[in-house]
């Protein structure tokens, strides 16, 4: 995904003179192509994210379309007030990229995990909060973000994530899409973790269970037309995210269901990380497995939901 970001932003910067890439001392060699085509519009801002974010806001107020790139905790919570005041309050159209989101850097420890970013940024007015499931969704959202008059946060993974979308015609900001059809229940989520849901659904199919999966693409703005259509088709929803159960996809859907008076019609199971820091480390797969959030854990939980236990 991060390689897609690097190639997409390079393409966009080739066409637009107002694109400026700010990096927080990360992405060694990744932006070589960008630096070749626009050396004056790349700036390594060092390990100083607060300054980088305020600078981006100032640049946007002067007509530039800056994009800020570093690892998710450092481009979100590290400089939260600069996002809230400089970027969001000023409605400065900055694009903020958080790379290695969720548990992508699981083995680096809690300092490098980002399991609260969606919750925190969702509470800030006027900020798009996106989390594409694959490179296709990322590309579509990125292009739209540079046309938007609002700032946009895009939470991406690291590398090697599979492509899950087959139809690219409806991808973008605030656009949800089914990435797998099904009949028994609907899994709704964001980000590359949905590949685990795809694997779980494939396995459950062999047991006669039919699971539909939707990529919401983000949690703000939310695709109300899509959710309304899904509420007519599925009465069992499962939210699924590589993020805390507090404030992310599950909370957003719960609020949406309540706002639309669908509490009686839809039952929602929320799956996400618990309200605690993670100390027992391993790679991303290990940690997801230990949290019962990988495809195996998901199979068990969905199986119970469909067949009871």
């Amino acid at each position: 995904m991060r390689n897609t970001f690097a190639s997409e932003i390079t393409k966009i910067a080739q066409k637009r003179e107002d694109i400026f890439l700010l990096s927080g001392d990360i992405g060694n060699r990744m932006f070589d192509k960008f630096k070749e085509i626009a050396p004056q519009r790349f700036l390594n801002c060092g390990i100083a994210e607060s300054n980088m974010m305020s600078m981006a806001a100032g640049m946007a107020l002067s007509g530039m379309r800056p994009v800020v790139y570093t690892i998710t905790p450092f481009t979100t919570t590290r400089c939260l007030e600069q996002i809230r005041v400089g970027v969001a309050y000023h409605q400065a159209p900055v694009v903020i990229i958080g790379t290695g989101s969720g548990l992508s850097y699981a083995e680096l420890g809690s300092t490098h995990h980002s399991l609260e970013d969606l919750a925190i940024l969702r509470a800030i007015p006027g900020l798009n909060v996106l989390a594409p499931v694959d490179s296709l969704e990322l590309s579509a959202q990125l292009q739209e973000a540079f046309e938007s008059k609002f700032p946009t946060y895009i939470r991406i993974g690291k590398k090697g994530e599979p492509i899950l979308h087959t139809d690219t015609s409806k991808l973008g900001i605030g656009k949800a899409n089914l990435i797998r059809e099904g009949k028994d229940l609907l899994v709704l989520g964001v980000g590359p973790i949905l590949n685990e849901a795809m694997k779980a659904a494939q396995f459950l199919e062999t047991k006669g269970c039919s699971v539909a999966i939707a990529s919401l693409g983000g949690i703000k703005p939310i695709d109300t037309a899509f959710l309304q259509a899904m509420s007519c088709r599925f009465s069992t929803w499962v939210s699924y995210e590589e993020h805390s159960l507090i404030g992310g996809v599950g909370s957003t859907l719960l609020e949406w269901i309540q706002t639309h008076n669908l509490m009686d019609k839809i039952s929602l199971l929320r799956l996400g990380t618990p309200d605690e820091f993670i100390h027992h480390l391993g790679n991303q797969s290990f940690v997801l497995n230990s949290l019962n959030l990988d495809s195996h854990g998901l199979v068990n939980q969905l199986d119970k939901l469909i067949n009871g236990s």
Binding site: L61, S62, P66, V85, G86
Partner: peptide, 29 residues
């Protein structure tokens, strides 16, 4: 008024961003 300030430590970095944008656009500001 060019920027909302009040929380300290934001204005200078924002002015720096403006200056870098102007340099990039070849504006004399």
């Amino acid at each position: 008024v060019e920027a909302a300030t009040g929380s300290l430590g934001h204005g200078l970095p924002m002015a720096l961003g403006m200056a870098i944008a102007h340099r990039s656009f070849n504006l004399p500001a």
